[in-house]
Simulated assay, not measured.
Amino acid sequence: MKTSEKFETRKKVVFAIVLTLLIISVFYAIYMLFQAPSGVAQNEGERVKTDYVLMVLQCLVGAIVIFLPKKVEDHFEVRIPNAIEITYFIFLFCAIYLGEVRNFYFRVPYWDVILHAFSAAMLGALGFILVDYLTGIENLNLRLSPFFVSFFAFCFSVTCGIIWEIYEFLADGILNTNMQKFITAHGEVMIGRAALVDTMKDIIVDVLGALVVVVFGYFTLKRKQKESAA
């Protein structure tokens, strides 16, 4: 079996596993929603109704966006590398199933930071793929410098991170969830600068994660440019 075929098989297996876990988790969260107490958690690690509302929301969103790479490939006739797709599925597994369902956000120190760095790097790589697709469209006739390509990839990654923070803010306001972690594990509502720490930390990590990939991508493009000119 060729390497490409092996990656294709692995991609399908990972996709099926993650999608199955997300669907099962939706039914689990709905069941627990009726069993959990209302109000604010009294003990660290205790889950209340709003926690399961968030779990249902996250799992449903995950079960929908897991099809996004396939839809993009079919609609735009662009090829996303299998490695990138597998990485994307693993990210959904870590962020939603492990993070929300298995409560890794509270069980594992810096789990949120790790995921934001991971997603920023992945989105930065996706930004390069997007530019590669655009430059391949004959009607556009784009010829972009390595710096501009890298700058676009950086902005694309950070913008996606900011959109995610907006999503968290709206979810917390509409569904009374705690995605932005403005309520401590002991039920204390933070105010002022303390309430902004989680959001700003996420944005800073997004910027740094994207920057690492973009710098690497910039020097890779510069090297290829020199090789093609030689």
Rank of each mutant, 00 (worst) to 15 (best):
R102I: 02
D132S: 14
M179D: 06
V189S: 12
A120E: 04
A171Y: 04
V197A: 12
A153L: 09
F76Y: 14
A16W: 04
I191P: 01
S228I: 10
L57Q: 10
F93A: 00
N141H: 13
F152M: 12
L221W: 10
I96S: 01
V101Y: 01
Q58F: 09
L142R: 13
I166W: 10
Q225I: 04
G127I: 07
N139I: 12
V149W: 03
I66K: 00
T20P: 03
F91G: 02
L130N: 08
D112C: 04
L22C: 06
L92K: 05
W111T: 02
E5M: 09
Y31G: 10
M55K: 09
I183C: 09
P37M: 07
D51A: 12
F67P: 01
T135G: 10
C160Q: 07
M122D: 05
V215M: 11
D172C: 08
K71H: 03
K2T: 15
F104S: 06
A185M: 08
T184M: 07
G161P: 07
A16Y: 08
E8W: 07
L57R: 03
Q35V: 00
N82D: 12
E168D: 13
A121R: 00
N103P: 00
Y218D: 02
F148P: 09
R107P: 00
H186E: 14
Y31K: 12
I86W: 03
A230T: 13
L60I: 11
T50P: 02
K71C: 04
E44I: 14
T220F: 11
F67W: 11
N141G: 15
L92H: 07
L22D: 02
T135E: 15
I163S: 08
M55D: 14
R47K: 14
K6R: 14
F104T: 04
T177N: 12
N103H: 12
T9F: 14
E165C: 08
D132W: 05
G173C: 05
F118P: 01
Y133A: 13
S157L: 07
G217K: 04
A95I: 00
A153Q: 08
G99C: 02
F106H: 02
E44K: 15
F169L: 15
I96Y: 01
L196Y: 09
V189M: 13
K11Q: 14
L22R: 00
H186I: 02
F147D: 11
V214A: 03
I66Q: 02
E138D: 15
A125R: 05
V13K: 13
F148I: 15
